[in-house]
């Protein structure tokens, strides 16, 4: 175990269920805080998180599942902000955007739209660890 923080992590989020979105962003922000380069790619139902109002919808789902306010866990909006402040980059899947009849204007700020080739080039060829939620 040594210092310096290294490596890169690519996270694919394909669901907007709280059990996918929260752990994905918790791992992402923590890894970034430890010096790992992190990118999160939202695709299929995961893309809903990036649609305006989507974060609130995931938070609502969690409250419903728990039956009240979740204790101790930061709100998803705060988690996303902390992730970004820590250096996590967020990407939106172009094919999903097209399939759902959306455009960049429907998304929250700061989510570049990319396709599979960008992901493969950056992460598969580049040897990142890849996590799928």
């Amino acid at each position: 175990m040594s210092s310096g923080g290294s490596g890169s992590l690519a996270i694919i989020v394909r669901s907007d269920n709280p059990e996918s979105v929260y752990p994905a962003l918790i791992i992402a922000s923590t890894a970034a805080s430890m010096g790992v380069k992190v990118e999160v790619f939202f695709t299929f139902w995961g893309l809903r998180v990036l649609v305006k109002g989507g974060i609130e919808s995931v938070e609502r789902k969690l409250r419903e599942a728990i039956g009240g306010e979740p204790r101790g866990i930061p709100p998803l909006s705060m988690l996303l902000e902390m992730a970004r402040k820590s250096g996590v980059e967020i990407y939106a899947c172009s094919t999903t955007i097209q399939a759902m009849g959306l455009n960049e204007g429907n998304l929250i700020e700061g989510c570049p739209i990319v396709g599979a080739a960008t992901f493969v080039h950056k992460h598969v060829s580049g040897g990142s660890r890849i996590l799928v939620f």
Binding site: I26, S29, T30, S33, M34, G72, I73, P74, L79, M82, K85, S86
Partner: peptide, 14 residues
């Protein structure tokens, strides 16, 4: 205090 993972670590890191 009062916050769970990852908040304390992220707060420290920032």
């Amino acid at each position: 205090r009062g916050y769970m993972c990852p908040y304390p670590i992220i707060l420290l890191s920032l």
